[in-house]
Design a protein around this nucleic acid. Structure first.
Lengths: 243, 243
DNA sequence: GCGTTTTTATTTGTCTGACATTTAAAAGTC
DNA sequence: GACTTTTAAATGTCAGACAAATAAAAACGC
């Protein structure tokens, strides 16, 4: 692992990249201990502060974890699925909020991906996942539910659907798409009428999954997508009229 | 923005989280300048080093960028699609390499997602994307091509397919799935015979996209998935026999 | 000899103060 | 007025110190 002191980039960024490369390429393996901060400072010929800044960069990406005390240090972290989920969600949320992505585009992407899970879920869904979906549908029908709670339940329902595919890689990929849409969806599901329609489609999906009926699940998801995008258009039109 | 000095977690992690929350919630907007490191140190009642470690964490997630000199400082970064792509790819690659995900599971996820793009791509693919795919097919047929180059071309072909859907959110989501599979695919496409079969299916896909024929694209992708998974099983069996 | 307690060494976490470097704006010069 | 020089502000880096956590080693009591 070498760095170039002449390079314009920050030393801490270079050091972080050198260690990152070592991890990605497998020269450093999971749970292996990195040299101590002082040793790294010696190796790279920089101060301990610079090494620390590099290590914090890696920690922010969940590539390493640190432990204090004797026989402590920095260890290569096993990137767990939950860690990857939350990074995926943060990134996706920021990407949508900062780049003027239209609701239509985001919605299309989300349902396209979700429909990809549907046939697998129709084969493999467990009774447990089905029960989760039913419970969320029941919650969504409660009269006093706030918009935020309704949307959170909506997310939980769709995550159960995705998890039904029984493929952790798919679940990980979909986490961002489903969760990042929530803030956008919050704006459009506030009337009694739209909730009713959404709940009806959720029930249709759950029934079809219950019956291992992939085609009906797909049809219901298409309906849900169409309905959601229509709702968003109506809301936008109403805004234009009012404002 | 407040932090709790009694908390067990690192101060720099807490400060990073506080600023991250401010960005995600919109209290800090794109291109806004954060207070200088000294001012932040005063606000949070910590030293400048601790503030710097927090800022490096945020920089590692592309949430801020820094600039030296007068009127420099840390600025909230617009998370661009390319930035998000590369983070997605790094995370996905590490997730697969560190978690003993079976080839079958990863392959299933990848093709499920890719098939989700196919109908859209069959409607919207541009001549330019089609030309890219043809060029990659031509390259794949060159006799002297190394395995690595073949796989890189394979990735480029599939990215063009995904981009054909004309939905940047989909392209972003798929980047991880397609690219992270490359190291795994590298191991199984080394015979002349398997290359030939793959190229034939690529041609079938390109032809079908040319004809706006979504069903044939889907069928070819299913064939490609079946063939790829079969190849992987054969390779695994041969390894068992040999080893 | 064994279990408990104390000490010690190591390592990360934090602080302080200093200097180098970069950069834009202000001041000065012709 | 255009150009050059100076200055101030900000990040980047360094060195050295102490605090806090932690595991291993040493000491102790029985």
């Amino acid at each position: 692992m070498k760095i170039d002191p002449q390079s314009p980039a920050d030393l801490s960024a270079q050091i972080a990249q050198a260690i990152r490369d070592a991890i990605v390429s497998g020269r450093l393996i999971v749970d292996e201990r990195l040299p101590s901060e002082s040793e790294l400072a010696d190796q790279f010929q920089v101060s301990r502060s610079t090494v620390r800044e590099a290590l914090k960069r890696l920690a922010a990406q969940s590539l390493i974890r640190t432990q204090r005390g004797a026989s402590g240090g920095a260890f290569v972290n096993r990137l767990s699925f939950p860690d990857a989920y939350s990074q995926q969600i943060t990134t996706s949320t920021l990407l949508l909020s900062m780049n003027a992505v239209s609701f239509d585009t985001a919605c299309e992407a989300r349902y396209a991906l979700e429909r990809a899970c549907a046939p697998l879920a129709a084969q493999r869904r467990t009774p447990d996942q089905l029960a989760t979906m039913r419970a969320e549908i029941f919650r969504q029908a409660q009269p006093g539910l706030t918009d935020e709670a309704f949307c959170a339940s909506d997310v939980a329902f769709h995550r159960a659907l995705v998890d039904g595919a029984g493929n952790p890689v798919l679940s990980y990929q979909l986490a961002g798409a489903v969760e990042a849409m929530q803030p956008l969806m919050n704006m459009i599901t506030f009337t009694e009428r739209s909730r009713e329609a959404i709940i009806a489609l959720h029930s249709k999906i759950a029934d079809a999954l219950d019956a291992y009926d992939a085609d009906t699940v797909d049809a219901a998801l298409v309906e849900l997508e169409t309905y959601t995008r229509q709702l968003a258009r109506d809301v936008a039109a109403k805004r234009r009229q009012a404002g």
